[in-house]
Design a protein around this nucleic acid. Structure first.
Lengths: 219, 219
DNA sequence: AAAGAAATTGACCGCTTGGTCAACTTGTTT
DNA sequence: AAACAAGTTGACCAAGCGGTCAATTTCTTT
């Protein structure tokens, strides 16, 4: 009778729903990452999630809705990345940690990166608002900070927007075009050391590219 | 009677075939660029080429064969790029012209770049040989040259393979993720000036990234 | 001008697709 | 334990898919 004292006695409301939705979203991300919205099939996602196809429709309605749910989750992840690029930051440290975060992202969430890439390749029909509003504003805000650093002579003069395009490209290539990298490096997969090396290469390159001599030390 | 003197009187053998194949290949490249092999439909390609669907099958057999024909044409284009990266070259000039060629490619053949990107995203099932043999060898050959430049103290010490990954990423992003760039820059399309600026930004960034102070002059 | 080769194409076919549904089982509440 | 809500799923459907084909037209050659 005192089960009210133990709210976990049976199960919280909607627990099953939450678990299954997460399971489906994860499988859908993997499948959409390979072939995009048009190329993926609900049967593939069903098999990848280990659930019958009808179950996906029960939770998400249509394929488009499931796709949008996947995209939304990715965007939240994308926008969450709280990067410490403030006017008073040290450009070297700020840029290095930005690149490092992007590289970590490419390693831990490669499928998210590929879904995003697929969406951009097909003209981003589901992302116009994000690109033209959220992303644009964030880039403008950060560009002003970088412009400030340049004005203060703390880094080379360059167009901050292109700097972002280049950093995104360099870091995401390790997720999106991993096959190409594995083939050229002749490895089955990149291990911890290889990822550290890659990250260090990109950071050094970016800092030099920005005309910054890598900071003496960064504890 | 003297039409033998004018071999172009009626038409060369196979002219129609050549023209139609080219027309189909061009349309297929556009369509495959957007959604990849799995996402594209023969009906879409037919409409894009202005020819009935049965005609595509008459010339290319299956969708997979048409896709391979598109990929093969792209690879020839890719490998054709005769870049002058020789041991005796000036690193600054050689790298600048390499980047410039890649940027020009992104502008003139964006669909080719996107087809390639789609193929890599889906794991490159049709490109394993190219990646593991042709590309790998070319990268190794050029990497030796760059390693020589580094040994001679003509540029910063970096892993040449990662340098290539980064250059490819930076230059291809202007073709593959053009929507994103247009959205951030708030333009309908990049004009001549915008492309020149982008190219200059990338070249400067790469040269600085390689520890090269941009050459005084390059006629 | 005749005849064979090449190209064209609407109609068609079997299969896969996204999506539905009703019958059923499991979970939750009282 | 009764009653209702939530979740499960095989079977099914119309639409769209890649691909075929036979009848026809258009080239090219002689």
């Amino acid at each position: 009778m005192n089960n009210s004292a133990s709210p976990r006695a049976t199960a919280p409301r909607g627990r099953i729903r939450r678990e299954n939705e997460a399971r489906i979203l994860e499988a859908a991300e993997r499948v959409f990452a390979e072939t995009g919205l048009a190329g993926a099939t609900m049967a593939q996602i069903a098999q990848a999630s280990g659930l019958p196809k009808a179950n996906l429709h029960y939770y998400f309605g249509t394929k488009e809705q499931l796709y949008q749910a996947v995209l939304t989750a990715i965007l939240e992840l994308w926008l969450d990345a709280t990067d410490a690029m403030l006017p008073e930051s040290d450009p070297a440290l700020a840029l290095a940690s930005y690149v490092r975060a992007k590289m970590r992202h490419s390693r831990t969430r490669p499928f998210a990166s590929r879904v995003f890439a697929n969406e951009l390749l097909s003209g981003a029909p589901y992302l116009t608002d994000y690109l033209e509003i959220d992303l644009k504003q964030r880039v403008e805000a950060k560009s002003r900070i970088i412009a400030g650093w340049i004005a203060d002579g703390r880094m080379a003069a360059l167009d901050p927007r292109h700097l972002f395009f280049m950093i995104w490209a360099m870091t995401q290539t390790y997720a999106d075009f991993a096959v190409q990298i594995r083939a050229v490096m002749s490895v089955e997969s990149l291990d911890d050391t290889a990822w550290e090396e890659a990250t260090d290469e990109v950071i050094s390159f970016v800092l030099r590219g920005c005309g910054i001599t890598p900071a003496a030390s960064a504890p």
